[in-house]
Nucleic acid binder design. Structure first.
Lengths: 350, 350
DNA sequence: GTTAGCACTCACCGCTTTCGAGTGCTAACC
DNA sequence: GGTTAGCACTCGAAAGCGGTGAGTGCTAAC
């Protein structure tokens, strides 16, 4: 049996209707609501064909049909390849970032909130997971007697800073001198390079070895943390609005998945090379999300790293709308991180 | 009518049983499970008295009794005044912080996670909301040509840093010189003081006024953000494990409350002067939490500021256990933020 | 190929029935 | 006077049951 144009049209009508209502759709509904010039009986025959082809499921014999994952796949593919990304809601995305926001993490949190409130689904935003950054400046800033703050600037922005202990008699000028030396020695290195070079520096710069040792521990840790990106989630409770999750057990397992950020990051990141990814139901590879879909898009920062934004909703998601919003949001974030206005938010902290 | 010792004992048994099972408890249960040497009929009489006194509620005439908020109040008060804070789980709290964690925010996030997994309830941790911090050092660090990172150290730790734009010909040494001047001029000021002083500095240091202007905007914003503390929430999905929240609508309103961090912070913070606060049901003052209880404790940082940790659970919470865990956790955090080991996490960022 | 007609299925709704946990009351008991 | 056994009563939850209607599949006619 073959898919012809009419079958496609009918399938599309079924999907549209199901996305809207969430209840199984029957043959009469299609023949009445959508102006196919066909009677319900004909639709019925076509539906039975479509079921045989694997595009429709029947919850039970006397209920309507429900689109299968395969059907959504077809639907989304044709949506994407048509290249028409409607921008229903362009302005609204743009409007939400007018406030001045500085910190990378704030931007990400904010984006997750906006995304979830715009789509009414659950939103996930990941900070860029960069290539390994290269050191550019190292600066020690006195904090109190006996301790100093390490600020490390890399080509990708500022790494999170931390306090180390130093000997009490060091003053600001000494620290500045050390900073200059360090910067000269380590410029261009990656963090792991720096770990290798440091032991020798410790030998050369006796007297200041305490500082360097503190730095050493910091570098090794910095390597680790730079691997786990920041994950912001918004609108987890939105999911409960959909009848798909009116079962408390299902809801709980979903929510607890949303709470384990690293696992979530892994899921959302996926094979994040493509500009858009749409994974439907089983394609997510996560049993807890058997009837969710995940749509992701990427944004990029000045350093050329890629971050991911994603929306998680029921399989009967409003795909075209979500894709459009993600598209806008991706551009918006890319613009922000490329710092086009004077208060420049392009910092990377991890 | 008066509370006598026997009534108290029976009430306590009822509360214990209800906390354990969550289903209304009947007279027979008490007379069998708990070795009062009394028959169910007697218990029945006592229960009817207790109801009259307002300690018990009856969902409907043919069901068992349920402790009222007043009963929990009595229960908790006697628990607290007995002064016995059992440490069921001392080790487990201690064990969870062995890893080296640097950043204030990481510690807080981590604490929320540990707290929720230990209690099986929802945990909220607030960063300290300080007195207004006083400037100690200001340092400009070159980031790239034309931009510099502002690092501001206060008596309470490091304020979040941000990038400002500078003229391209400034090099590291010039920035250092400016930093020194700024530090000298502004040391000891609060952020708002600094905003007042800056205009004059701008006039005096012509040539560098661009830098100072950037700083000005940053200071004014810093004031604002320093007022909204970091809020970490853990285990929101735990709440769904309790039959109290098997109603999806209830669950959703609870969850969406957990998502609006600033409102949540306000609720949890409460009148945060006391070491322990236990608010039961209506005492929380939030309709969404009519059948929740909130227990909070405080921790303090080196700067003398106080942060809050809290656990939100159903009114039939395991109070003594939660109090014990909060107590341990409070001490633990206080210790951490007073930096007793070499990798000092005592930073305040907001 | 399309459609009208019809028998059939089955979830859902509202109804009654049954069941049992739990109460309140009374009368007897110590 | 406090305690207890006994009993009638209440009422929610669960189970049983027929009616309803949306929806299907099939067949025969157009």
């Amino acid at each position: 049996m073959q898919m012809d144009e009419r079958k496609r049209r009918i399938l599309r009508a079924i999907i549209d209707d199901y996305i809207l209502t969430g209840i199984p759709v029957g043959s009469r509904t299609i023949s009445k609501k959508y102006e196919t010039g066909l009677s319900s009986a004909t639709i019925r025959n076509e539906m039975s064909d479509l079921e045989e082809l694997g595009f429709l499921d029947q919850p039970h014999v006397s209920a309507g049909r429900v689109p299968s994952a395969k059907a959504y796949r077809l639907y989304v593919d044709s949506l994407l390849q048509s290249g028409v990304i409607p921008d229903d809601s362009a302005e609204s995305v743009l409007g939400h970032f007018s406030g001045r926001i500085h910190q990378m993490e704030d931007v990400i949190d904010h984006a997750a909130r906006v995304l979830s409130s715009l789509t009414q689904y659950t939103a996930v935003v990941l900070s860029p997971n960069g290539l390994e950054p290269r050191l550019q400046t190292i600066q020690l800033v006195p904090v109190s007697i006996g301790s100093a703050l390490v600020v490390i600037v890399t080509d990708q922005g500022v790494i999170r800073d931390s306090v180390i202990r130093i000997s009490p008699e060091m003053d600001g000028d000494t620290l500045y001198a050390i900073s200059r030396t360090l910067t000269n020695e380590l410029k261009g290195c990656t963090l792991s390079d720096a770990c290798k070079v440091l032991p020798e520096l410790i030998r050369r710069m006796e007297g200041n070895d305490e500082v360097l040792r503190g730095l050493y521990g910091y570098f090794t840790e910095g390597q680790q943390t730079s691997r786990s990106p920041h994950v912001a989630v918004g609108g987890t409770s939105n999911m409960l609005s959909y009848p798909e999750y009116s079962d408390v057990d299902k809801a709980r397992s979903f929510l607890s998945l949303m709470e384990t950020r690293d696992k979530l990051a892994e899921i959302v990141r996926g094979n994040g090379e493509l500009a858009f990814t749409v994974r439907i139901g089983p394609e997510t590879g996560v049993p807890e999300m058997a009837d969710c879909s995940i749509i992701t898009a990427t944004y990029s920062t000045r350093g050329g790293q890629q971050g991911t934004i994603g929306v998680i909703g029921p399989t009967r998601m409003r795909y075209s709308r979500v894709i459009s919003i993600l598209n806008m949001m991706g551009h918006q974030l890319t613009d922000m991180f490329n710092g086009e206005d004077e208060n420049n938010p392009s910092r990377n902290q991890e």
